Amino acid sequence: MRISELKKKGLESLKGKWGKAVSLMLLLFLINVILPYIVEVIGSGGFVQWFDQEGTPLWSDIFGTVLSIVLIPLTIATTWFYLDLVRKGNPEITEVFAIYKDGKTSLKLIGGSILQAIFIFLWSLLLIIPGIIKSIAYSQLFFLLRDHPQYTILEAITESRKRMNGLKWKYFLMNLSFIGWGFLCLFTVGIGLLWLIPYIGTTLAAFYDELIVLQEDEQPIEG
């Protein structure tokens, strides 16, 4: 399937669902961006004290780090939301936040995200290009964990690497094709991202559903 067809499928999956997708993005923006500022202002004793402080308090940095880790399952559940849309489902926003009801899965997603980041970082120590290649090779990790919850993190990473053989360049070009839209969003002061991110998300989900799932009959590599 060509990149244009994957993007078309991504857009088609959002028909009649744009309201949900944009609302979810707005909620994530409030949680990821606005909430840390609100906490920092309150913790500083008010807006005036916060505005006058010279640096970011240590407790604020710690809070931001912990929040980033806690929000990992929510971010991944959002990509699963897009996958449901591509598969002609009708997911609700509440399903994204319901990921925290399953503590075991949430911890697994956090562990997978951290391990993935470590692997990419180690490859990047060689040169930036190997790091980019490996980040693409591991890109299907969380979609695979959605469809195969029995996989261990290492099995899912290895399976992602295996199934991306021959598809890495297409995946890279597909992501690159959104750069123009990204520049246009700058003229909307970032507001356009509320629509662009779901478009990208459903296209990435379509890539997985159309190209990666086709290899389902192959046996996963152990390790």
Rank of each mutant, 00 (worst) to 15 (best):
W123N: 11
S124Y: 04
L125F: 10
I128G: 13
P130Q: 01
P130T: 13
P130A: 03
P130C: 05
G131P: 00
I132M: 03
I133H: 06
I133Y: 14
I133P: 13
S135A: 13
I136P: 10
A137P: 13
A137R: 10
A137H: 04
A137S: 09
Y138K: 08
Y138A: 01
S139Q: 06
S139A: 13
Q140E: 10
F142A: 09
F143Y: 15
L145I: 01
D147N: 08
P149M: 13
Q150P: 04
Y151S: 09
Y151Q: 00
I153V: 12
L154N: 15
E155P: 05
S160P: 02
R161K: 15
K162C: 12
R163P: 05
G166E: 09
L167C: 09
L167M: 14
K168Y: 11
W169F: 14
K170T: 04
Y171K: 15
Y171T: 02
L173C: 08
M174P: 06
L176R: 07
F178K: 10
F178T: 11
G180V: 14
W181Q: 03
F183T: 02
L184M: 09
L184S: 05
C185P: 05
L186F: 12
F187M: 01
F187C: 06
T188G: 03
I191R: 08
G192M: 06
G192Y: 08
W195C: 13
W195T: 08
L196H: 12
I197V: 02
Y199M: 15
I200K: 14
I200S: 07
T202M: 00
T202H: 10
T203G: 05
L204G: 03
L204R: 15
A206W: 02
A206Q: 01
F207C: 08
F207S: 09
Y208K: 07
Y208N: 03
E210H: 07
I212V: 07
I212W: 07
L214T: 14
L214E: 12
